[in-house]
Design a protein around this nucleic acid. Structure first.
Lengths: 343, 343
DNA sequence: ATGAAAGCGCTAACAC
DNA sequence: GTGTTAGCGCTTTCAT
């Protein structure tokens, strides 16, 4: 009497189909040198027995796990959830699983994750590093795709980012088009390089338009609704409250709108707000949040595809994806430069 | 000359430390029967060489992977993101990784995930099943914890859910306390059993208070902001628009508020809205959403702990966690039953 | 095109 | 307390 609970192995399939382990293995992995008959037979037996290949054994031998990691700062932020979705969709097509590690902005957690991931022998990783110390990653030479602004410091790694310069220009042009002056800026303080890139983009935009950007008003805070609310509070309660605010991310922009509400200020009449991310939550506020949308899903999708290429040896690719203005309602209308003539 | 890129194995550690594979293995896994000297030596060598145990090989032998799966309908829904966070926090403490599978409400995707998960030889799974066909799971006897309303149909599996009956009562009592009549209900149509449990809870509440619940107004829609908006639109555009709406989840409640705005109706003056979930996005709307909060983080946390117990053989536990009312601003004030006397 | 055999790196019996 | 040994289930030469 056989043990009934023991899962069937490739050996069982081999015996039942009257072939050898190797042939079955070949059939399973789609090797070219195998007869149509054998392949058919194997498929049949596999279906009949419900055999599933043991990923660990296969991985142990082949050195591949079929798992890639996605390391992000905050899964509760819809922006990252969207990125994850994009990556997972792409991965699912190829039968690959995505392990999501969320560090909650905690560098220690991130380091811990990075190590766990190496230990789990993932085939590769997509990482948006919280801190500058992701030397961990480059240390174990794991195929890696970087998302975001730290790409510059690791030119040998593949990277995917949104075009911050272009996005910032889009936003500032739009703000100016409403006849507003230079806005105050809300910047998250957890990701230094991201903040720096954002500020640099502002200066670049200003230079191109011969606008003075030597006295930017910048408020820092936690990359969250609450952080944005508090930072905006400081701005608003100062002697010269701003008439418009441009947040480096949507969550903080949402917080800004909350701060306005708490002070009975109207948006966009009293203070205009512009976001940067394009999360769905921005559609349901009052007014809905005008924002520069990053292609989050696509970032996830492309990251995964490039990771696969990276595993194949093709590294150092750098992809920059454009942003798009999502006009909603937290900015005043555009003032036409030349009023339309009759009609 | 040795190959330099080849990762060090337990054998290397054994050789260098002058011990045997087994002793090193014991030291690594914290077995009791080992001398302090040996343990110290191993730790030393591991640190010096940077050795990391190969999870696949270890898993192949021990039958455990150190990975558990979390299968949810939608990672982009903050409620599930919070659950995931809770589970991941608990898992991280024990050095276990959580694979997140989001089916995006697609039963086929879910089935695909469930299979991938079995194939990946995860040690266990936490599942909120989209459809009634999670026979997949119970088929391969994988340690499983069910989240949500399908628990009843699988009494032999461990389950964790929030107390919907209590939550619904909390909400309806609160609505009544504002002097409103029975609200219209918004229910997601993707998760039948959840919807049924919600409706049953309404009836139970009504029965207990001798209120007629034979003619409930129920609108179904997609479990999302958009779905809630459309469903509410139908209600609002009917001959007898409701004066209050109770959504079975926050995303739909947010949609309801959007529908109100589109029609220039005031919330809560014209129509009151009550949600059910407690997601953070509800804090930043105008007005902020009053809702019954489920203990999302805790659900994730407890699910993981019970999964560990389930792997240890302790099954069939059923945990129900209470909900809490989060008073914000989308309902009129409570009407005092006996107006306060002077002072 | 197929089979036999040799491990992948590790853990768990079993001896000592 | 420690070493020896035998695999876990699979892929991959190497013959045939």
């Amino acid at each position: 009497m056989k043990k009934s609970r023991q899962p069937i192995t490739i050996l069982d399939v081999a015996r039942i189909s009257g072939l050898s382990k190797s042939t079955v293995s070949r059939a399973l992995s789609g090797a070219p040198n195998i007869s149509e008959d054998a392949r058919k037979k194997v498929v049949e037996v596999v279906a009949a027995t419900g055999y599933r290949r043991n990923a660990m054994a296969s991985g142990l031998r082949s050195g591949r796990t079929g798992i890639v990691a996605l390391v992000i700062p905050d899964i509760a932020n819809p922006f990252w959830a969207d990125v994850a979705r994009g990556a997972q969709d792409a991965a699912a097509e190829m039968g690959i699983s995505v392990l999501i590690f969320s560090s909650d902005w905690n560098p220690d957690r991130e380091k811990q994750h990075l190590q766990a991931l190496v230990q789990a022998r993932v085939d590769g990783a997509i990482v948006n590093p919280v801190q500058d110390g992701l030397d961990e990653i480059s240390h174990f030479d794991l195929p890696t795709v970087l998302i975001g602004s730290s790409a510059g410091r690791f030119p040998h790694l593949t990277s995917v980012s949104s075009d911050v310069e272009q996005g910032v220009a889009l936003a500032l042009d739009r703000i100016m088009a409403s006849g507003l002056e230079m806005p105050a800026f809300l910047i998250g303080d957890q990701e230094r390089s991201a903040g720096e890139r954002f500020v640099a983009s502002i200066h670049k935009w200003a230079n191109g338009r011969r606008i003075d950007s030597s006295n930017l008003r910048i408020a820092n805070g936690h990359y969250s609704v609450d952080g944005g609310c508090k930072a905006t509070g400081m701005l608003l309660d100062s002697d010269t409250p701003p008439t418009s605010i441009f947040a480096a991310n949507d969550l903080m922009a949402l917080g800004a709108m909350q701060a306005l509400r708490e002070r009975n200020l109207e948006c966009p009449t009293d203070v205009a707000v512009m976001g940067f991310d394009g999360i769905a939550a921005g559609e349901v506020t009052t007014p809905p949040l005008t924002t520069v949308a990053k292609p989050s899903r696509q970032i996830g999708d492309e990251s995964f595809r490039l990771l696969m290429k990276s595993i194949g040896g093709e590294r150092g690719v750098h992809l920059t994806l454009p942003c798009h203005l999502r006009e909603r309602g937290s900015l005043p209308d555009i003032i036409p430069l030349r009023p339309a003539l009759a009609g």
